[in-house]
């Protein structure tokens, strides 16, 4: 059977489980049905019936369990409706779409991941993939910036990563509280303290565009090639298949040419205000 129907017509899938992550973010585990698992960095279009669709990144590498995992921040009517779903509810899913993280290029190299806020969700499958096949990759350094300690995602999993010898995981927050004993400050401050060989490193970053730009500029100053720095872009999407032009970004379509791009390909576009 062609993959076309699952790309253009939503497949009704049941929510198997939900995990509240923060006050406004939830992780949904869905049955996968006819939807292919997707690669790290790809996304599905999720459709709470009657409200509209939202492009949501795959947030776990759970293909073996034949489940789809998405982490949603409820900021608009559609995403809020998705975040409010409960086990047993049904929503429509199309996908997977887009170009994911460069996992093949990352093999054998040091990997630097920089996530900001909900941007950890699209990068989590990269961490899962590396940990599952640990010997195939070099060092894994993860820098995670969150607004406050309470607004961190995947808190139980973070504790495991922080304690693991398989990766170097550090969190920083913009604003701590009385119980926070971790780092406070912008994520580039952590990055500046990290030691790695820029020529043998590949970087992937996801978060607000201004953060990704600051991260990419910092890595460029450290000597990394723009082609070795990858950013995940976000725009409102409609068809998700490069047909409607909703997510057009200069000459590119975020949905089909991205959402993951080498920084060298879009660095100039990221500074054009009219796009």
């Amino acid at each position: 059977m062609s993959a076309l129907p699952t790309r253009l017509a939503p497949v009704p899938l049941r929510v198997l489980a939900t995990t509240p992550e923060t006050a406004d973010s939830t992780t949904l585990v869905l049955e996968s049905g006819a939807i292919q698992p997707g690669a790290p960095g790809q996304f599905n279009m999720l459709y709470p019936f009657g409200l509209g669709e939202a492009a949501i990144s795959i947030s776990a590498d759970d293909a073996a369990a034949r489940r789809l995992v998405h982490t949603v921040r409820g900021v608009g009517p559609v995403s809020a409706a998705i975040a409010a779903l409960r086990p047993g509810d049904v929503l429509g899913v199309r996908g997977p779409f887009g170009v994911g993280w460069p996992m093949r290029q990352a093999r054998g190299r040091t990997i630097v991941l920089v996530a900001g806020g909900i941007g950890l969700a699209p990068l989590r499958p990269v961490i899962h993939a590396v940990l599952r096949e640990r010997a195939a990759y070099g060092r894994l350094l993860v820098f995670y910036g969150a607004r406050t300690p309470r607004e961190r995602l995947f808190v139980p999993e973070l504790a495991g990563w922080e304690a693991s010898a398989d990766l170097e995981f550090v969190t920083t927050v913009d604003s701590g509280d009385a119980n926070w004993g971790g780092h406070v400050g912008f994520v580039t401050a952590l990055l500046a303290q990290a030691r790695f060989d820029p020529a043998r490193t590949i970087a992937m970053t996801c978060g607000p565009e201004i953060m990704m730009r600051a991260v990419a500029n910092h890595l460029r100053e450290r000597g990394m090639a723009a082609e070795d720095i990858h950013v995940s872009m976000e725009r409102n999407m409609k068809c998700a298949a490069g047909l409607c032009g909703h997510c057009q970004f200069g000459p590119l379509f975020i949905c089909k040419d991205g959402p993951v791009f080498p920084y060298g390909r879009i660095a100039e576009l990221m500074t054009v205000r009219e796009i």
Binding site: V75, G117, D174, G185, F186, T188, A189, G207, I210, M211
Partner: peptide, 17 residues
């Protein structure tokens, strides 16, 4: 300069709703 730039970005509250 680095600390001033970082403070500006923190002040944006970029991870807020």
């Amino acid at each position: 300069v680095q600390r001033m730039s970082a403070a500006r970005l923190q002040a944006l509250d970029m991870f807020g709703a």
